[in-house]
Simulated assay, not measured.
Amino acid sequence: MRTLTRRSTLLGAVGLSVALAMTGCGKAETGSDSGDSGSDSKALNVVFIPKNLGNPYFDASDKGGKTAVEALGGTFSEVGPQEASPDAQVQYINTAAQQHASAIVISANDPKAVGSALTQAKSGGTKVVTFDSDTEAQYRDLFINQASPEGIAKAQVDGLAEQIGDSGEIAILSAAANATNQNAWIELMKTELKENHPDIKLVDTVYGNDDDQTSFDKTAALLQTHPDLKGIISPTTVGIAAAARYLSTSKSKGKVALTGLGTPNQMRKYVEDGTVTEFYLWNPTDLGTLAAYAAAALANGEITGKEGDQFTAGDLGSYTVGADQTVLLGDPTGFNKDNIDDFDF
């Protein structure tokens, strides 16, 4: 199986930081003051708002963000809803803006539902960086893209095609039906299948809403509805883990291939027991790290977010803002028995 390279994860942090008070906003990571962030007028404080708390993917990305913000001498906070839904993040955006956060870093549950709140935050001087799942462009200053949508779609389709002999019925187990990134990847998967894998038929797309039990049940239903199914793609960390959990104890283990986007720690046992041959992901810790450095560069006036702007993201190196105010982290990584123990996130 093909294994793509990854960027090294930022190591260590210097200094501690003062907690940004986020009253009524759920979980927050805090520290103690370590001095000026690089701005003469205001200490750096960055609020990360994931799609939902308790999600292993966002635990990893926000860990990278925390390390980066504290390395810059700033304050890091993580707040957000327990369940992902279109408007669940609005109250956390509003509170961060009221607390005059330097920047909000958000993975949007919906491209439009948080738009008004983000617009108001921006009008008050808070910079807005989206990562993982974008909003409409007018609502943010930068989008930190984990990998190109085309690269993500192609890696998953090609990987599954190789596992099932490039023919047969497959299905997609996605997150929420209105998730921006999921829908973009699915459309590109359909194009990739049509153009390069004509003998593979996509027979169904179902939605687990990034909920473990719902995704587990949807996997069971897929196998019952489509008895000739040869493979499942789940481009969501919650979905692929739930699908693997179901397959690992079912009669379909070893018969129905599963791939998608997952983290090594949650998928390791399913790779080791043969339920999953290979799956994909960028390094979410690196993604959070890059988003934090971008947010700091915006807040400190080092960049404005226009195409061609350049900034340094610690050990990750130098990045350039591309078209549509987008910064690209890099290519996804393929995880399999040969390399999965090299990663810990």
Rank of each mutant, 00 (worst) to 15 (best):
M1N: 06
R2E: 11
L4S: 11
T5N: 12
R6E: 15
T9F: 09
L10N: 07
G12T: 13
A13R: 11
G15V: 06
L20V: 11
K27F: 11
E29P: 04
G35P: 04
D36S: 13
S39K: 12
D40P: 08
D40H: 09
D40K: 12
D40W: 04
K42L: 07
N45W: 01
N45R: 06
V46F: 05
K63R: 12
K66A: 14
V69N: 01
A71M: 14
G74M: 04
P81E: 11
P81I: 04
S85E: 09
P86D: 07
Q91W: 00
Y92M: 01
Y92E: 01
Y92I: 00
A101S: 10
A103N: 04
N109I: 03
P111R: 09
S116N: 13
S123H: 06
S123W: 03
T126W: 08
K127S: 14
V128P: 01
S133N: 10
T135H: 00
E136S: 14
A137N: 14
D141M: 12
F143G: 04
I144F: 05
I144T: 05
I144Y: 02
N145M: 14
N145Y: 05
Q146Y: 00
E150W: 09
A155W: 00
Q156K: 14
D158P: 06
G159H: 02
G159N: 06
E162N: 13
E162M: 12
E162I: 01
Q163G: 01
I164Q: 08
S174H: 09
A179D: 14
T180I: 01
T180V: 10
A184R: 15
W185S: 03
L188V: 12
M189W: 08
L193S: 02
K194S: 15
E195P: 01
N196V: 05
P198C: 08
P198K: 15
D199Y: 03
D199F: 03
I200M: 15
I200N: 00
V203F: 12
V206M: 10
Y207I: 04
N209R: 10
D212F: 15
F216R: 10
D217I: 11
K218V: 05
H226N: 14
H226V: 05
H226Q: 11
P227S: 07
L229A: 06
G231A: 12
S234R: 00
T236Y: 09
V238F: 10
I240Q: 04
A241N: 13
R245Q: 15
Y246H: 12
S248R: 05
L261M: 11
P264Q: 05
Q266T: 15
M267P: 06
M267A: 08
R268S: 07
E272M: 09
D273S: 02
G274S: 03
T275M: 08
V276K: 05
V276M: 05
E278C: 04
F279C: 02
W282T: 13
N283P: 04
L290C: 07
A291Q: 02
Y293R: 01
A297K: 04
L298V: 10
L298K: 09
G301T: 03
T304P: 05
E307A: 15
E307Q: 15
D309Q: 08
F311W: 08
T312M: 10
G314T: 04
L316W: 02
G317P: 00
S318K: 15
V321P: 06
G322Q: 07
A323W: 00
A323M: 11
D324M: 05
Q325V: 03
L328A: 07
G330E: 02
G330T: 05
D331L: 06
P332L: 01
N336R: 03
N336C: 07
D344A: 10
D344V: 11
